[in-house]
Design a protein around this nucleic acid. Structure first.
Length: 569
DNA sequence: GCCGTTTTCGGCCCGACTGTTTTCAGTCG
């Protein structure tokens, strides 16, 4: 029995129980059991006594055992028989949860989108206890938009909106501190909405200014401390603002950064010490409320090291505290190994890019323009590559404290060959190989192309190994575990491309690469100076895979990097 | 449904907002 199926079944049971208006603690017990299985590294057959796992008891264990033995679950079957499938999509309607849906089903026979619409139109819904005219209108309105509003938004889309909102909030004089929070701050690839936490002494004025300056389609909620709006952009994007006093700012930021599971774990921990965490502070056993100047101080209050926002996910991070000091952070980064200039499709010259790297405090970097095959990007021929190197030498002569290396981002061609001969490659300091064409080839062909690159002694790194664009395209579907094995065998670097469009390799693959001790380079792939800032995103994203700094090539000192570069020469 | 060197029963994270009430339930994050 596949573990994934078991997890899905437990989650389905929770969903159906919710639809029946069951006790929410019972519902969450099934969800917790599913999460406990997912969080356990072992496969089902490797677990001897599953009730030993915290969160799995008699009831959920019975479901799991039945699934393993018969492939089916009587509990789920009975639930499915008693509950119409058509109710499931209705749970997505804002304002409708299990209890209300159960009532609609039991009292009015609502079992689908259509029957709910009819019941509203016939004004039957408003007659139910707990419902009213407004609720009925709201359901009708939401039914129109069901499925239309995209559920989650990719990080690159949100990044642009966050920058605009940050600019707006910076311009409001009455705001003392502010920050984006939520899953965006935790660097999730996709987020449902954006959260901002703001501290101010004049909530009403700040609220007024925010509402005036944003392009708003709809104000969803407007309370004392919370404003929730839908922005009027191509995609409807939900943004929540929380307004609190300066003393409350840190605990509010922590609360709305989440994740929910992380908060639950923290609150349980607090409770064991007779304390109570809320967004307004930590209530002490004597009833006084303590607030904090920084999140570091907040965690220190519970004798914990600072837990990076990117790590605050399942709650299990609280069991890996000793690993946190070894994780890569932006401060550890001394180089960027993948960027473009005006020689191919970049916006800035070698001189400008080099100076920008020095400004960031780096000790070295590599210029890696596209190769000749990529004509749309003005890829370099071997002759132009030679001339470009002269310019790099000039830059190095003028900036002796810094070192710019000559490299290339060479295409792996559709027929499996490489865009430059070894004679050209051996003259370069750093060679990146990557795929930009014929994404739809079979996995066999894609892997042959990658294999050629990995086996070439002059290639140092494979860039954006899967070619995915978050939320847009899957990429060319390579067998990543195989690629990781090859990288380990031939001593190659794999890239974590830090562009918000890519974040490639993804967290799951980075974890695999780490098991094989494959060195990872976090690179911005910058096509302009402004994009060098993606390094922060890249290092934050790497933390989500618990990537250790010693495996990250950009943290290596220049002489260690050179040892790696010239080992085959 | 799960859990427990203070508990085998009575909790289960905590609070805001809304719409429905006239003090609160449901939903949400």
């Amino acid at each position: 029995m596949n573990k994934k199926i078991v997890i899905n079944t437990l989650e389905k049971i929770a969903l159906y129980l919710e639809l029946q208006g069951e006790n929410p603690f019972k519902v969450s017990a099934f969800r917790k059991a599913a999460a406990a299985l997912e969080g356990d590294q072992r496969s089902l057959s490797e677990m001897d006594d599953i009730t030993k796992i915290k969160g799995i008891g008699k009831g959920t264990a019975a479901v799991i055992h039945e699934l393993m033995e018969t492939g089916q679950s009587t509990v789920l079957k009975e639930l499915e028989e008693n509950t119409p499938k058509g109710l499931i999509p209705l749970l997505k309607l804002p304002g409708l949860g299990g209890k209300k849906l159960a009532k609609l089903y039991q009292e009015l026979g609502v079992d689908s989108v259509d029957s709910l619409r009819t019941a509203c139109e016939n004004k039957q819904v408003q007659k139910l206890a707990g419902f009213g005219e407004k609720t009925e209108e709201k359901i009708l309105k939401e039914l129109e938009h069901l499925g239309e509003r995209s559920e989650r938004h990719p990080i690159w889309q949100l990044e642009m909106i966050v920058r605009d909102i940050n600019d707006l909030l910076s311009s409001i004089y009455e705001i003392r501190q502010f920050s984006v929070a939520g899953s965006f701050r935790r660097v999730n690839e996709m987020s449902k909405d954006l959260d901002f936490v703001i501290s101010t002494d004049d909530r009403d004025l700040v609220k007024e200014k925010i509402l005036k300056d944003l392009v708003i389609k709809e104000v969803v909620a407007d309370g004392d401390t919370k404003v929730s709006v839908v922005l009027d952009l191509d995609d409807a994007i939900n943004v929540d603002f929380r307004l609190v006093s300066d003393e409350e700012y840190i605990t509010t930021l922590n609360h709305f950064t989440g994740s929910k599971d992380h908060n639950v774990k923290m609150r349980q921990l607090a409770k064991e010490q007779d304390k109570k965490i809320s967004e307004y502070g930590v209530e002490q056993p004597d009833g006084t409320v303590k607030t904090f100047k920084s999140e570091e101080a907040f965690y220190a209050h519970f004798n914990l090291p600072y837990i990076l926002p990117t790590l605050r996910e399942s709650g299990q991070e609280l069991e890996r505290l000793e690993e946190i000091p070894n994780l890569v952070t932006l401060d550890d980064i001394v180089s960027d190994l993948h960027m473009h200039t005006t020689w191919s499709d970049g916006a800035h010259s070698i001189q400008e890019m080099g100076e920008a790297l020095i400004d960031r405090g780096y000790t070295h970097g590599v210029i890696t323009d596209h190769s000749q095959y990529l004509k749309v990007a003005n890829g370099l021929t071997p002759e132009r590559l030679l001339r470009q190197r002269q310019e790099i030498y000039v830059f190095n002569d003028e900036n002796p404290e810094f070192r710019l290396y000559a490299g290339t981002e060479m295409d792996i061609l559709p027929d499996g060959s490489l865009d430059f001969d070894d004679e050209v490659l051996k003259q370069l300091d750093f060679v990146i190989a990557s795929i930009h064409s014929s994404f739809s080839q079979s996995q066999d062909k894609i892997m042959k192309r990658l294999q050629t690159a990995v086996q070439n002694p002059y290639v140092h790194m494979i860039a954006h190994p899967t070619g995915r664009i978050i939320g847009e395209r899957e990429g060319y579907n390579p067998d990543v575990p195989q690629l990781i094995e090859w990288a380990a065998e031939y001593g190659k670097i794999l890239e974590l491309n830090a562009s918000p469009y890519r974040l490639d390799l993804c967290v799951e693959h980075l974890k695999m690469a780490m098991e094989y001790n494959v060195p990872i380079a976090i690179n911005t792939d910058a096509h302009a100076i402004e994009q060098l800032r993606y390094m922060k995103l890249g290092t934050n994203y790497a933390q989500k895979a618990w990537l250790k700094k010693e495996l990250v090539v950009n943290t290596w000192a220049r002489k260690d990097f050179e040892t790696f570069l010239y080992k085959n020469k």
